[in-house]
Amino acid sequence: MIEVGVLELQGNYALHHNIFSDLGIRSKGVKLPKHLDGVDGLVIPGGESTTMSLLLDTFKLREPIKDFAKENSIMGTCAGLIMMAKKIEHETKVVPLNILDIMVNRNAYGRQIMSKKMSINLKLNNELMPLNSTLIRAPKIIDYGKDVMVLTMLENSPAAVMQNMHLGLSFHPELDGISIFHELLFNPSSKYYWNNLNKVDAA
């Protein structure tokens, strides 16, 4: 039985625990390096990336998470995606973890007044899944390396990307109760598990 950690420095970690509970997957909060012991994956939730970046250093989690990423899957949503990036455009305060070979623009969609819901299409195993996506002061992926696979696009930018066993999303599936991405990354018994997929197409 696998157990997934959810980074609980700041942000909407509670809703990710709800999704894991819906999927019947155990999850626990990660606030200190010792909490990574025994977990099989990690979610970096939405929240404020400046706060997370600072607290990663205060509580000495930065190097342990980088090491953890060598063997285990990590999923980041919104601020979590920013934290997983290699580089952040025009940014001095947030130091990213360099887990995904992407460059992001923080809050590229603007202030809260520009936050919105949009439709996206995800195609897994040739199955087309129309999904809601909620963008909250969202980042944009503005460049990515050749090993990065784009799962879905939003307004001409990649909105869901995979590299090796890691997943980054600019939107918030947990706000819409969508569990397919958690299943894709963390549920080995699912036909949508990343390692079981025949084919992932950009839709």
Binding site: G11, Y13, L15, G47, E48, T51, A79
Partner: peptide, 9 residues
């Protein structure tokens, strides 16, 4: 959604 992102802070 934005209120959710401010949690734990």
């Amino acid at each position: 959604g934005l209120a959710e992102m401010l949690k734990g802070g």
